[in-house]
């Protein structure tokens, strides 16, 4: 990141004179988990060119997005970011972002990286994620707020039972901090995924039985209504 920034700086200086609409920017990005009972896996915020996109509603998820949405892995998306010269803020919370909590990081954007995308998996879900898609970074200094919805990657059936986070592995990953809150022995809410494209998440069903029932998530805790996250961007 730092070396990239050094390379970018002369460009940024010239941009202020030549191309104000594509100039580099110095951003403070704050992501707040607005939900009462859901956690976010490591967050990825990337500034990139408008012709790129981490996901498109109504289109099938990429393998890299699938790995993030099903298991919280940022590796695939980060390597795509590197190949398209995106600027990345990865895992500012240093792990899970719990309900109500906020995390802040700096993002220096290179000339031409004029849009911002933010993703993180939502736990406990099978393939739910928070998604900000190609939000145009304002050129005017100031503080901007965006409310973000929960999406379903469409890559895994929402069975809501314990399983794994690797792509293609059914069930939900359960990291240690969530182990006590999530039930077991659920029979599974469903085995099919109706919409195989990225779409607004229909929400968890859950049940009231932590030792059996159809779901391992608690129906009075692990649910949400949109929006699920607030992203505050300070353009310096």
């Amino acid at each position: 990141m730092k070396s990239q920034f050094k390379k970018v700086l002369p460009l940024a200086l010239s941009a202020t004179f030549m191309a104000p609409l594509t100039q580099a920017a110095d951003l403070d990005i704050t992501i707040q988990n607005l939900t009462s009972g859901m956690s976010f896996t490591p967050i990825l915020a990337v500034a990139h060119t408008p012709d790129a996109s981490l996901f498109e509603v109504g289109e099938a998820a990429s393998a890299e997005l699938q790995a993030m949405a099903e298991g919280g892995s940022l590796d695939g998306l980060a390597s795509i970011g590197a190949t398209i010269n995106a600027d990345a803020l990865a895992n500012p919370a240093g792990g899970l972002l719990l309900p109500g909590m906020s995390t802040t990081g700096d993002l220096m954007t290179a000339d031409g990286n004029t849009v911002l995308s933010v993703v993180a998996m939502i736990l406990p879900t099978n393939d739910g994620f928070i998604g900000l898609d190609n939000w145009t970074i304002p050129t005017e200094a100031g503080t901007y707020t965006v409310y973000v919805n929960a999406y379903d990657a469409g890559t895994e059936a929402n069975d809501e039972i314990r399983g794994g986070g690797a792509p293609g592995t059914p069930g939900m990953p359960v990291p240690p901090p969530l182990a006590d809150a999530i039930g077991e022995n659920g029979s599974g809410v469903t085995t099919t995924s109706n919409n195989m494209t990225v779409h607004i998440h229909p929400g968890n069903i859950g049940d009231a039985d932590q030792a059996a029932g159809v779901s391992d998530v608690q129906n009075t805790v692990h649910r949400w209504l949109n929006p699920v996250a607030k992203v505050t961007i300070v353009v310096n």
């Binding site: 607005l34 939900t35 009462s36 009972g37 309900p99 109500g100 929400g203 069903i205 859950g206 049940d207 009231a208 129906n219 009075t220 805790v221 649910r223 949400w224 209504l225 929006p227 699920v228």
Partner: peptide
């Protein structure tokens, strides 16, 4: 949880919470 957050909505007895006094009419978005 003892912090203010957005609300997750109500479950109701029509949607799998047998001990709820709420019914389907009480759901909101």
């Amino acid at each position: 949880r003892n912090i203010v957050t957005y609300h997750a909505g109500v479950v109701t007895n029509a949607d799998g919470l047998d001990t709820s006094v709420l019914d389907a009419s009480h759901k909101f978005d």
